[in-house]
Design a protein around this nucleic acid. Structure first.
Lengths: 243, 243
DNA sequence: GTAATAGTGTCTATAAGACAGTATCAG
DNA sequence: CTGATACTGTCTTATAGACACTATTAC
């Protein structure tokens, strides 16, 4: 199969093209609350949805971005400074009415980052960058169809937390099992049995011991690192009680 | 929130746009084999990948398609005549090199249809339309990055079959439990215990009895319909042995 | 010592896999 | 009747939830 040329400016097509954007739903846990990163749209009333909160994102730059994932990474780093977070594609949304400027399609990614590994940055097209509790963000009318995107991302996150090691990406390494359990409980919104939790995590085999951590509590706990930061581990069963 | 105008031709933007396409991975089971629908690229050597097999799909038409899902439905109907199949978004792939004509992004859907509800159609840009066994298609070099898309779709299908009612969408209603079990076995590529299978399906509560079906065998079996054709049901556990 | 959190052991209910057995049809 | 397929019952075993228990630190 020949991968030929592929160059900067494709010859203009004989039909109109949709706009192509990438948006990112960036989650973190701060002070026992699941939060999402939002940016405020510029106040300029010639822009769509002025002064409204939105997900970070923007147009694909075909000169800068080799592919969609690279574009997502670029935008994530512009806003948070985080270089290699957990990043997963959520899906794409496209249609005539989601952007008043015309037919557009957005490719949505969701990212998990530890709250203490970031420094928020104010970009060119974002008057303000801020964390907001997910529960509050879900009740806020975001720009474009971003409320839909956020709802989908939260649903995906909550769902996958039931049977994957995803929450581990919300913690800075090394972390302890009680810390990990706490993150699970924050995202799930309900308590989790300690004994079962520990058995499950250790049996899943994605954690490597990393020496004791002198932590927040009286007795030091074992610290762990992820064996692989590439992907989350899938558990054979769910967390649900009576499951 | 104001949903204003949104019209046919967006004002041309000050920067080049990627091409936007939709591709569909259409699965069916025929004669105990999982198959996928492929179209042959035109022989015209000015077209990319002439005479090569590809997934059905094409450019989004912003005048015809209200949104991505509508575009996928349109393309599916053009190729198969099927109107309301199971249709789920798989994800999107975009980058500089996947289409020699330039930066492009495709939104990929996958569809499940019963093999006896379709009539293949030859479209304008497809010299040939044909079913191919999935195992063979996976070994074939398809046009563009369609081999990647197909591999992802097959992985998603095989994975979801382990814990959802997806295979039910591959059968014409009403169907019997032995028929459904057979489809599961075809997609999974391994036998499934009869007793456990029946308990599981009936407990999942997505089937409604629809009278006895005088079928292929000696003893007639109970026929079933799906209570809802909107989505598949998720089982609490997996099919895997020793799981 | 006490308080606090880390970590372990044990019991039990549930449910799935395995497989043998019964029921109902065609011929 | 026989053969074939639809359907059911039972036994065993794995495991997750519940919860009580022990261990190791700070003070």
């Amino acid at each position: 199969m020949t991968k030929t040329q592929a160059s900067r400016s494709p010859s203009p097509p004989p039909f109109p093209l949709p706009y192509t954007t990438v948006d990112i739903v960036i989650f973190t846990v701060r002070d026992s609350v699941l939060e999402v990163l939002l940016v405020k749209r510029p106040a300029d009333s010639r822009e769509p949805f002025p002064s409204r909160w939105a997900l970070p994102g923007g147009f694909v730059n075909i000169d800068l971005d080799l592919d969609l994932l690279a574009c997502a990474r670029r935008k994530l780093q512009e806003k948070t400074g985080v270089v290699s977070p957990y990043l997963e594609q959520l899906g794409s949304w496209g249609g005539r009415d989601r952007d008043p400027r015309g037919w557009s399609a957005t490719h949505v990614y969701f990212a998990l980052i530890p709250s203490d590994e970031l420094e928020l940055r104010h970009g060119a097209n974002a008057a303000d960058v801020s964390w907001m509790a997910v529960d509050r963000a879900l009740k806020t009318r975001l720009a474009f169809d971003h409320s839909d995107l956020l709802a989908a991302a939260v649903e995906r996150l909550r769902s996958k937390v039931e049977y994957t090691s995803l929450p581990a990406f919300l913690l800075r390494e090394p972390f302890t099992l009680p810390q990990l359990q706490h993150v699970y409980e924050v995202v799930l919104g309900r308590p989790v049995d300690k004994s079962g939790f520990r058995t499950r995590m250790l049996a899943a085999g994605f954690l490597a011991e990393a020496g004791h951590v002198e932590g927040t509590s009286n007795r030091p706990a074992m610290g762990y690192r992820l064996i692989s930061r590439d992907a989350a581990v899938v558990f054979p069963r769910t967390f649900s009680p009576r499951g």
